[in-house]
């Protein structure tokens, strides 16, 4: 099972249900929605698809998020240079 973690502890701020992350290595700004930001905050520690999906399910009771959607989101974060596979 693949494990994911933040590439570095970049500066992030939470404003109006959106998260803004400053990547000071690549000089980029990435904006996430609230659930995305929640996932990002969990990724300070290593996470699997399963652990993230379960945590989101516990936090957002009315929202059904599948592992597939989490995986797609993590792929996007990797493309943005914010997340990597944990070694």
């Amino acid at each position: 099972m693949a494990r994911y973690v933040q590439k570095s502890s970049y500066e992030s701020t939470h404003l109006d249900n959106e998260w803004i992350i400053l990547n000071t290595d690549d000089y980029t700004v990435t904006k996430l929605n609230d659930i995305g930001g929640f996932c990002w905050s969990l990724l300070e520690a290593e996470q699997t698809l399963e652990s993230l999906t379960q945590a989101v399910g516990r936090e957002y009771l009315e929202t059904k998020v599948s592992e597939r959607e989490i995986e797609e989101f993590l792929s996007q974060l990797m493309e943005c240079g914010l997340v990597k596979y944990a070694v």
Binding site: Y27, V56, E69
Partner: peptide
């Protein structure tokens, strides 16, 4: 907010980024 999403991703203008460090 029905699933985690990247809303936007964009580079910072060089002049701005440069002033972070120097």
């Amino acid at each position: 907010n029905t699933r985690p999403m990247v809303l936007s991703h964009q580079p910072i203008r060089f002049e701005t980024a440069h002033s972070w460090n120097k």
